[in-house]
Design a binder for these strands. Sequence first.
DNA 1: TAAAAAATCTAATCTTGTTTAGATTCTAAT
DNA 2: ATTAGAATCTAAACAAGATTAGATTTTTTA
Lengths: 204, 204
Amino acid sequence: MTLIQATKKSAVTRQLILDAAAKMLSRHGYHGTYLKDIAASINMQAGSLYYHFNSKEALMQEVLNKSIQLIRDIVEEEVDKLGHKPDFVSLLKAAIRGHLIAILRHADYTLASIRNYGQIPKSVHDFAQADRDAYENFWRELFEQAEKEGVIRSGVNTHLLRLALFGSMNWATIWYADSGTSVEEIAESQADLFLHGCYKEERD
Amino acid sequence: MTLIQATKKSAVTRQLILDAAAKMLSRHGYHGTYLKDIAASINMQAGSLYYHFNSKEALMQEVLNKSIQLIRDIVEEEVDKLGHKPDFVSLLKAAIRGHLIAILRHADYTLASIRNYGQIPKSVHDFAQADRDAYENFWRELFEQAEKEGVIRSGVNTHLLRLALFGSMNWATIWYADSGTSVEEIAESQADLFLHGCYKEERD
DNA sequence: TAAAAAATCTAATCTTGTTTAGATTCTAAT
DNA sequence: ATTAGAATCTAAACAAGATTAGATTTTTTA
């Protein structure tokens, strides 16, 4: 007697399809990704995908949704490791490391999301908007909290700071693969840069 | 008697087509951009585009090429304003301002380039690679020079620094439009962040 | 203003991708 | 082993987009 539907072959194939779709989507964009190619890469026929997904749009929605959830989960994990009431520097480092681990380890998914932002049918994109907003809020609050604690240098606009940091991190998806640099190294470097800058200050 | 071929109506239409193509490309990606739509947006028929360009690929090549040239020109202009032998801080600020002005003022072109990086037929992309490399070298040398002058804090990896800065700047193309922030403000903020960081150091 | 050249349009061709319906092959439980 | 249901395939319908050739209109030149 079957107890758990989800552990059947179907579930496995579903993930295979999602992974294949993420890879294609990240490389060729939504409109440049063809069901035929997704199917072929896992030895299936294009038509067979419809047993698992109702349409190309539905498939893409799941990819994008998974991509944002992967990030949130890993960042949360890294931050939780810190325990109760971590200081700002530790928290920022952990969050940066988590974000980078997520987007680089699951590069297909996150590149699929980042690269296609804005060039995907609105309905597909809106699907994961709530999750994206929630994640953004985590960062917003991180910096707001830091400001309250008085550890942010005066004159720094934390709104622009957050956007700059996001840019640095997300851009890594583009050059990471052929850089030979480790994720840890990148995380360390970016945290250091955003905390202290690159300029050798003349101390008095 | 016509002296200059290039000032004919053809040249004007050419630019109209390029602008329209850049806009479409930036919004929908290479494969999601249709010649029909490009043509329609300037009241032409798809077939007519072939009088000006040999193929969709050729058209896209020119858009990408123009996008990188726009950036180089404006950055050069900003840097030249500084005169002879500017100090590192001035130079970095000018370069950042130039890059941001370029990518935000000509957002259609630069977004077309950035968003489609990697999801465009290789032949199209390779076309402008030399220009991209040259521009990257400008930044590489900027930081190498600074290191020689000893104004870079020890421990800073200028390679990763450059990539982080590029990420911050280029990412602005994504949020700038609905941010209400001025280009000058962003340039100022990013230069300040990358020079000094966000953390309030405890001075001794 | 008439002829030549430039620019655009029309309509058809060719190709390719999504989707569907029904047939076929697996798989798992009895 | 048999059978129901799951999973996949096949082949065709349908829709769109790139490209082309030739006709047509517009602009320029003399």
